[in-house]
Write a protein that binds this DNA or RNA. Sequence first.
DNA 1: GTCTATAAGCAGATAGAC
DNA 2: GTCTATCTGCTTATAGAC
Lengths: 190, 190
Amino acid sequence: MKKETRKEQIIQTSAKLFKEKGYAAVTMRDIAKSLDIKAASLYNHISSKQDILKMIIISIAEEFTNKMLEIYSSEVSTIDKLQSIIALHIDIAYKNPYKMASLNSDWMHLEEQLKYYLELRKSYENNFRDIIKKGVSAGEIQNKNIEVTLFSILSTLRSLYLWIPQKEDLNPKELTKNLSEILIDGIRKH
Amino acid sequence: MKKETRKEQIIQTSAKLFKEKGYAAVTMRDIAKSLDIKAASLYNHISSKQDILKMIIISIAEEFTNKMLEIYSSEVSTIDKLQSIIALHIDIAYKNPYKMASLNSDWMHLEEQLKYYLELRKSYENNFRDIIKKGVSAGEIQNKNIEVTLFSILSTLRSLYLWIPQKEDLNPKELTKNLSEILIDGIRKH
DNA sequence: GTCTATAAGCAGATAGAC
DNA sequence: GTCTATCTGCTTATAGAC
């Protein structure tokens, strides 16, 4: 029932190319060629190359920030919140493997929206940090260096997009379970 | 006693700029401007922009692969090997925060050396995977999905360069201890 | 909605003077 | 070792025909 518009095609195709070579190295001719049209025709649907990047990154960044706030505000244990965050990252990465690459690697090429993007990211990270801090206070999380704890988990979650598309034998549900166990309880056998 | 040559200056300055904007978005004029010379003067020291990228990436990639082979071949427990790998990443990231960015984000812009780089990375990852597998067999590591286990640790280690330069209050020794504990034993308090 | 033609500027790299 | 001048080709984007 739902028809993919030309504009959506352009965004998806661009995201795929941006993942392979990065925003700066992809030309409007590259994008057009992937769609079997000429570069000039792109401008009937989008206003500029920057416009494409903006549409790829901002929607995903807003989704992360909004969902993080929901998790932060929910009244469950810290461990449950962490599991929800892990599930959130896996869900978005499965649905948007290409856009995730731009979010992680091409955000610095944003122009007008750069400041807004950085605010979204800051909000996300602050809420994440605070969840961990409250977990330490509540005796659920070990009292290690907060930044190292945050960084360690976040690095893995942010890198998911690099890794998910290759392992299609692993479904999101099982990956969420595996990854939660490893990130929360480690890998050592006792 | 040791004097930094112009060539070394060019490589360091380029690495710093590549970290900020990525290889493709940095021009020879940008690099020259950072060194207060003209773009044409760069070519007296290096042969091309590609040449700079090659020198940044390959030396670090070889160091990782060689040191990983040493760790792999050493006769210590799996946990000790993992701690050595963590220490290796922290050591290299502290010494080369800019070059690490190119290694992680600009390797796809390598031309003649791309195949060689991919071989080095493959060798590194295969040895890492095998260390984990042997740890499972020896009963030191939990029998979870090997790829998830490998990916989780490697993502954190590969992202260190994004995070280390900002936290200069944390010394390498302490970071190694903290990160080892978190990656190996998790964050949950029992 | 796509095309051809083209503008205006920037890219990497070289030649040759000093 | 650095400079100025310059080549050649590629970049994003627009104008206007169909």
